[in-house]
Every structure is written in C-alpha cells, then in structure tokens.
Design a binder for these strands. Structure first.
Lengths: 242, 242
DNA sequence: TCAAAGCAAGCGTGATCACAAATCAAATCA
DNA sequence: TGATTTGATTTGTGATCACGCTTGCTTTGA
C-alpha cells in the first residue's frame, strides 16, 4: 500500500497550486453590481434593465436577473410597480434614516470590536492609516475611488473583529443602501475643498488601541455623520432653490 | 364633450371592483417560504432542493431558485459549498448573536415608536391584547401557530410606527433568521408548561401608552429574551449529555 | 390643432433544455 | 471483509424561447 506516498505527492502539488475557486457567473455579476453601487457608479433614480446589464457584463440575462433580485431584497435597488428596477432616489428622510441605522449598528459593532481586538489586529488597521497618508501625500487630490476602497477596507477590517456573523451582513447592506447617496456627497466634497478625514480615523484607532468602546463608538459616528450632514445641507439648499 | 359622464361611470365601476393585484409566482413562492421559515416548518440543518420545492409548490424551478437566492442573501437560508442550500443550524454563538442584534435593533425601533405612536395606534395594539386573551381563554393550550401569528402582528404593528424604512426590513430579516431557532424553543415551551407571556406584552403596551421609550425598550428585550434563554439552556444541557 | 386610438419595439417573467458537478449505490479489487 | 472505483441518478447553473405587459410613437378622427 503506497497510500502514504500518494498522499505526500498530492500535498506537494497542493503546495504549488492555488485554489481556482468555484465562483458562479451569478456571483460575479452580483459582486460587480455591488461594487458599482457602493462606488456610486450608478446615479440615484437611475433605471437598470436586465438585458442592458447583461450586454454590459457580457453574459446572458439569467445571472443578471437573479443578482438584481438579490439586490432588491437587501434594498440596494428598488422594484417599481412597473416591474422595472432602479437605484433608490435620495430623500431627506432616507438620509436621516440611513444615518441613524448606521450609527446604531456600526456603533455597536465597533464597540464590540474594541473589547475584542488583539494587538495584532490593531496594528493591522493602524498600518492602513499610514498607507492612507502616503497616498494622500503623493497625489494631492484625485483618485477618489482608491480612497473610497481604502476607507471601506479600514471600516470592515474593524467590524470583522466584532465577532458577530449577524451584524456584519447588515452593515454591508447598509453600505450598499447608502453608497449612491454617499458618493454624491463625496464628489461634492472634492469640489468644495477637502476636509481632514484622516483626523477621524486616527481618533478611531486611538480609541481602539486603549480598548475604549464608548470613545470608539463616538469617533465612528462622527466619521460616518460627516458625509451625511454635508449631503443633507446640499439637498436642503437645492430644494430651497427649486 | 361627455368627459365628465365617462369619468363618473368609471368611478362607479371602480367602486364595485377590487384591484386584482400583480403578484408574480416568484413573490408567492418567496412569501410562502418566508412563512414556513418564520413558522418553523423547516427544521434547522434541513436541506432544501429547488426541484423538490418546485414540486411541493406546484410550479417550475425558475421562481423557486430566485426565491431561494433572495432568502440566502438575507441569511434566512445558507448556501453550502456543495451548492446545496439548507436551513442554518442552531449553535450557541448564533443564538447569542441573534438575541443581541434583535435587542439592539428592535429595541431602537420600539423606542422610536414610543415617541411617535398616536392614541389611535396605541388603542389598536391594545385591542390585540384582548383578542389574545380571548383565544387563550377558549382553548387552554394548543394552536401555537395562531399564537405565533398574533405575536408577529403585535410586534410589527408597533415597529411600523417607528417611521424607519431602513430598520423594518432588517427586523424582518432577523425574524426570518431566528424563526427556526425560536420555533424549537416554543415547542419545548408548550411541553415544559406555559409561562405567562401576556405579562410582557402588557408591560410593553403600558410603556408605550405613557410614551416611556426606555421602559418600552426594556420590556421588549425581556419579551424576546425569554425564548432565547430557554433555547440556550436546552442546548447547553443536551450538549452536556452528548 | 389636438387628443385618443392603434401599432411596434422593448421589457420582465416563467418554462424548458443542455451541461457539469455532486451524490449514492452497486460492483470490483486487494 | 473492507476500501476503492465505477456508473447511474439527481442537482444546480446558464442559455434560450414564448408569452404578456408596458411604453413611446405614429396615425387617425373630430
């Protein structure tokens, strides 16, 4: 019986190769649409069609319609009575509603994380802060996409430490819902002049490293409130004009 | 121009007829699976197949697969790496996780509702309490399904008053996730002898009627903690035996 | 000239088929 | 006898087609 030898050979092969994964087309479509939504590539109130997306993503309609259905159930998209689907429009009530929910849930997640993060994990998110500064130093403005991605990684790296398999998907859903709104605010930001966003993130990391759950929660709420407050003002002024 | 006459005739017709609705097969399948999940008709860890459900619901596979996909994204079902889908199993961590999330979010919802409910709405949920007592008086035990339905109506009637279009879908998702777990506990309840559940609901209504948000939150948390705590003890004792 | 009817293109929905992966059972070999 | 392999059945996934609804434009009639 050369069972052991075969086993060893397989292990050698396994060490060289990297798993190819079994992602379905539907999963890729779903991920791509999520990315687009969080990244603000779609405008609020924009209507999406199955065939149009299928053409753009170079697949058939089948994976797209299932991905759209999933995004509708998590309120990232909206099903109109006409049976067409669109990106939810921005309203003042919705902005306040989203901010309240995010403060509540992400606040709880970071408070939990503050009591559970080990030094290794804290060092990891602290390192992201440095990477951030480098990027900012190099190209004074621009590259909003890269900054947004980094911001997302920063937040979820922390949230993952809260140890809740229930809260994290909810937070993802909230980011999905607020993505299109936030992006509108961010773009307006970069026109209106930069604000020191790094300051908030430093406060968060500082609170985490001394395991101060309450301070972490407050710093986080201040961080996520910023774009919402900006968007709120912008919306109110435009509605006055109209 | 007999426009006014035509208009009047149309109104008369509309008064007689009731809208026929435009629910798709997929929607019906989704609702039915939701009902089954919250009602605990499926056991934890039970595997569901598309064709099996399609046969049981007397449709084709298409509406079922889309409904399953939607339920998977809201974590009401679980996609295994084998690509089969099952009802999520019960674990101690999951129970604590769900209870924490529900206390947080439903607690916030009821606190908001406490400040916003008008006398009309309060009277409505108070009336449900009476209906409850009647049912309980008639058939001493039994009819758990009816009681569960009433309980669900009671809670969501309150939550709807919180005025948040973001929180309510999240609460629905949480009920969906905890449905199978809760049902296991409820059935064990009715064996172990009834507890006075009406007491908690009276406390909730009392707090709401004097607009005491904090008391309402505490009464609610006590109410939803009960089956979770019971289930928790049951799980711990069985794991000791095994 | 303008509103209403009619028509055509586009869309979502559901059914069916083809294919590949997984599962289970019988058959095979050591 | 017990582990392995082989083959048949079942399952999920994706593509395609047919049907009915919606929408926008043209045409018709007053």
């Amino acid at each position: 019986m050369q069972k052991a030898a075969i086993e060893k050979n397989n292990e050698m092969i396994a060490a060289q190769l990297t798993p190819v994964g079994r992602e379905t087309v539907q999963d890729r479509v779903y991920s791509e649409l999520r990315r687009a939504l969080i990244g603000g590539l779609f405008e609020p109130s924009q209507v999406l069609t199955i065939r149009g997306l299928a053409d753009a993503l170079v697949t058939s309609t089948m994976p797209v319609r299932e991905a759209l259905g999933r995004l509708i159930t998590e309120k990232a998209l909206e099903a109109l009575p006409n049976r067409s689907v669109r990106v939810p429009p921005i309203t003042l009530e919705r902005i306040d509603d989203l901010l309240r929910a995010r403060s509540l849930i992400e606040g709880e997640a970071i408070a939990l994380a503050a009591t559970r993060m080990n030094p290794r994990q804290i060092a990891s998110v602290e390192a992201m802060l440095g990477e951030w500064d480098e990027m900012r130093a190099l190209k004074h403005k621009k590259d909003i996409d890269r900054e947004a991605t980094l911001n997302q990684s920063f937040h979820f790296e922390i949230y993952r430490c809260c140890g809740s398999a229930v809260l994290i998907p909810m937070i993802e859903s909230l980011w999905l819902q607020s993505g299109p709104c936030i992006r509108v605010a961010i773009y307006a930001f970069s026109d209106a002049g930069e604000v020191d966003t790094a300051h908030y993130h430093r406060s968060i990391v500082a609170a985490l490293s001394r395991q101060d759950a309450q301070a972490a929660r407050e710093a986080l709420v201040a961080d996520i409130s910023r774009p919402f407050a900006f968007l709120r003002d912008k919306l109110q002024s435009t509605s006055k004009e109209g």
